[in-house]
Design a protein around this nucleic acid. Structure first.
Length: 491
RNA sequence: CGGGGUGUGGCGCAGUUGGUAGCGCAUCUGGUUUGGGACCAGAGGGUCGUCAGUUCGAGUCUGGCCACCCCGACCA
């Protein structure tokens, strides 16, 4: 396990703040708990965006954009929704500043008080459904499949870099359907899309399931989730997809006329993933040398570092490096040739490892003489020297190897840290000794769920979709249970 | 909001019984180096979180305020 996750003296945020991504929490009080995502970190978000966006479009979704501000009255239409978010909303009350008459800088102009306060969106269901009311009249307007890339603000009491920041970037899908079946189908389609993306691109294995009533999204009938396991044995919710039933349609009076001429409320879904995915990527794959990026997500896939003494040597090496670079690029690989003379090779090696670049090629005088190149793969840090003959094909398959190896490794870790537990003592022992996922029977009651949470801090991450039916007894109460659910301590 | 901790050059820190600020890294200049984060020499950079008080004198003592971090409650 990476040092930064086990060494409790240093917190992991500091580790990647200092070493990897430089995403400082903003210092100013007014933007407390927010991130400054520096270019290297933001490039990862752009890769996540472009990958997901393509998948959304392939499944018939389109992008739109809605306002940042939500009138307070919109927000309170859906009872469960307002209750869920009320405690963490940033509220805009004024629209103007003025010079302090006492000369002490600038103050809020009390004359510019808003008649109705504006909430900075913590999520956009309400303002979007307020629009949908005007957009939907007939079954011919359905389904409405819209996604938004945006920022949202949730005034969390405690923030954590990437995992829970006051402001974060995300995508939120909001769809409307003519029938419950179609909406549920959409909910599942997105869940599978998320799981596929996170596993195929990010090399993070996930468990698909649905949430207990306790853990459900505020205003949802059902919340589906993908749950990932971090290297320190804690779970992280990596994405959610909600079946909202007719709750929001009723709250915003969104009706449509069906084929038989009957008026009905539409059925809704919403779903989202956030910059938390970057946190997951860091906490699943990093090692003591820094970040490890799966090739499909790496903004830079191959870096070439020259080693030289004289100008002449550099020229010869550069000519060869540029040939290799062009050849790799013709295969769609992103390559950087780093011939800066401001840093030494050793410094560059360490720096690119810290940044997680999947493959490093090194060219020195020795290599030019032997027509070879040194190859170092980031996932295992193995070095080898091979002929430049057929190099491009080799790199293409090496990148594929790294991608699949990372998923295999993460899945092995996940499986080795997933425990079937049948007694309360074992349950507590597993949590205290190593953490990880626990599959255990649960009697289905909120009381038991809460008791377990109070006593162990473990929560039900989800009821796995593929959980087989089996007779059992609740690990806490001993009452009968039909299937195992997934417990863990979580972020 | 409870419990703990911390605010001193860009970053990380030291600063003794109160005497007018220092170290490492980073930066800049020159030179030697370059196959795993180079070395030597020199240089620049700080109203010590903030406001008030005590004092001849405050980074240091006293009080208020502000902010941040960690552990909870809350949560993508």
């Amino acid at each position: 396990m990476a040092k930064f996750l086990t060494n409790r003296d240093e917190n992991y945020a500091q580790w990647y703040n200092d070493l990897v991504i430089k995403a400082d929490m903003a210092e100013n009080s007014a933007v407390r708990g927010c991130m400054v995502i520096k270019p290297h970190g933001y490039a990862l978000w752009e890769k996540i965006q472009s990958g997901l966006d393509r998948l959304f479009k392939e499944t018939g979704h389109v992008n739109a954009y809605f306002p940042l501000f939500i009138p307070k009255s919109f927000f309170s239409r859906e009872a469960a929704h307002v209750e869920g978010f009320a405690k963490e909303c940033a509220v805009v009350t004024h629209y103007r500043l003025k010079n302090d008459p006492d000369g002490k800088g600038i103050i809020v102009d009390e004359d510019a008080k808003l008649e109705e306060e504006l909430i900075i969106r913590p999520t956009s269901e309400t303002i979007i459904w307020n629009s949908y009311k005007n957009w939907i009249q007939s079954y011919r307007d359905l389904p409405l499949l819209i996604n938004q890339w945006a920022n949202v603000v949730r005034w969390e009491m405690r923030t954590r870099l990437f995992i829970r920041t006051a402001e974060f970037l995300w995508q939120e899908g909001h769809t409307a359907h003519a029938t419950a079946e179609e909406a549920i189908e959409e909910t599942n389609r997105i869940l599978n899309l998320y799981a596929g993306f996170v596993e195929d691109y990010m090399a993070i294995p996930v468990i698909k399931g649905y949430k207990t009533e306790n853990e459900r999204f505020a205003g949802a009938i059902d919340t589906y989730t993908i749950e990932a396991l971090m290297q320190d044995g804690k779970a992280l919710q990596a994405g959610t997809s909600h079946f909202l039933g007719q709750n929001f349609a009723k709250a915003f009076d969104v009706t449509f006329t069906d084929k038989t001429g009957k008026l009905d409320y539409v059925w809704a879904t919403s779903w989202g993933v956030t910059t938390r995915l970057i946190g997951a990527l860091i906490m699943v794959h990093s090692d003591n040398s820094g970040l490890v990026l799966p090739p499909r997500l790496a903004p830079l896939q191959v870096v070439i570092v020259p080693i030289y003494k004289s100008e002449d040597q550099l020229n010869t090496i550069s000519a060869e490096a540029k040939k290799i670079k062009a050849s790799l690029e013709s295969e769609g690989i992103t390559v950087k040739y780093d011939d800066r003379d401001t840093h030494k090779p050793g410094w560059k090696f360490a720096d690119y490892e810290l940044k997680g670049v999947p493959v490093r090629l090194v060219l020195g005088p020795r290599d030019i003489e032997n027509k070879t190149v040194e190859i170092c793969r980031r996932d295992t840090l193995e070095k080898s020297t091979r002929s430049t003959e057929g190099l491009t094909g080799h790199i293409v398959s090496l990148l594929g190897d790294i991608q699949s190896n990372m998923l295999v490794r993460a899945r092995r870790f996940r499986d080795e840290n997933t425990f079937k537990v049948d007694s309360w003592n074992d349950f507590k022992a597993v949590l205290d000794d190593q953490g990880g996922f626990i599959l255990a029977h649960w009697d289905g009651t909120v009381e038991t769920e809460n008791r377990i949470k109070e006593e162990t801090k473990a929560t039900i991450r989800c009821i796995p979709l593929d959980a087989p039916e089996e007779e059992g007894k609740c690990v806490y109460s001993g009452k009968p249970s039909r299937r195992r659910v997934l417990f863990a301590r979580s972020y």
